[in-house]
Simulated scan of single mutants.
Amino acid sequence: MKKLLPILFLIVGLGAGAGAGVFLGPTGAKGDKAETAETENKKDDKGKSEAKAKPEKAKDETPTGSEYVKLPKQFVIPIVTKDHISALATVSLSLETVEGSTDAVYSKEPKLRDMFLQVLFDHANMGGFDGAFTRPDNLAPLRKALNDVARNELGDIVKDVLIVDIARQDT
């Protein structure tokens, strides 16, 4: 009986998973529409129907001609009060750039990280991460400073600097 119980649990678990997949998965009608959207029927000279696949857009492409370059590591900013670290703020940034400029951003990443860190340290020293630090009027000067630094370093290829994630951990 002890050897049969794990096998029974495995069979019940697989059945429940399969049932949930069928129940929560796409229905036949939606699947047919998705398949129709991917292919189009085109008749050749003899009247035969032939399926032609539509090219898919790359995941990073947007209709506006922008590309989003995520900086790979978070920025960790110490928040100092009365000569000791009272909290840490973490910020994740991405850059909205013109298409085809990913390599230019990554080639200047160390310089950009240094400049962004200086802006973030200045913001922390001015009390930017104190209180309700996620309010729009508190983040506006930070966004402007980050944009200015990015445009000074990379030029017109930078459209915007996006704050993707921001958090504060009190110590």
Rank of each mutant, 00 (worst) to 15 (best):
I85A: 03
G65S: 09
K33F: 15
V158E: 02
A34H: 08
G17Q: 09
T97G: 02
I77Q: 01
E56M: 12
A29M: 05
S107D: 12
K43I: 07
V22M: 11
E38D: 15
K42P: 03
D114C: 03
V105W: 01
E38R: 12
V98G: 09
L88S: 07
A51R: 12
A20V: 06
D156M: 04
E35Q: 09
A145F: 07
I77M: 00
G128D: 01
K46L: 10
D137L: 12
G100H: 08
E96R: 15
I79K: 02
L117M: 15
A87P: 04
D103R: 11
V149C: 05
V149T: 10
G28A: 13
I79D: 00
I157H: 01
T102I: 06
L5T: 07
S101W: 02
F23Q: 08
D170Y: 02
L8G: 13
G100W: 06
I163L: 15
K3M: 08
F75K: 02
T27E: 08
D60Y: 04
G47K: 07
N138F: 00
G128V: 00
T64E: 14
K3V: 07
L24D: 07
K30D: 14
P136K: 05
M115F: 08
S107P: 02
V164R: 13
E99C: 04
S92I: 06
E96T: 11
R135E: 14
K144M: 14
D165A: 12
T81R: 06
Q118C: 05
P78M: 05
F75G: 03
G28T: 09
M126G: 10
K43M: 08
F9G: 07
S86I: 02
P141W: 01
G127M: 03
D137V: 14
L146W: 00
D122R: 12
G31Y: 07
S92W: 04
K42I: 14
D156A: 14
I163V: 15
N125T: 08
I163F: 05
G128I: 05
L4I: 13
A37C: 09
D130H: 06
A140C: 02
N152H: 14
K108S: 10
A58P: 04
A29S: 13
K33E: 15
E35M: 14
H123F: 15
S49A: 13
D165M: 08
S92N: 14
R168D: 01
D160M: 03
G65Q: 15
P110L: 11
A132F: 03
G28H: 07
L71K: 04
S92P: 05
E50C: 01
K108T: 04
I157E: 01
M115D: 07
D44K: 09
F75L: 01
K59N: 11
E99N: 13
T102Y: 05
N125D: 15
V12W: 07
K111A: 12
K57I: 06
T171S: 03
D148T: 11
D130M: 09
L5P: 00
E99A: 14
S66C: 01
D32P: 00
V161A: 02
Q118S: 10
E35V: 11
G19P: 04
D32L: 10
G65K: 11
V119M: 00
L154M: 13
V105L: 02
L162C: 03
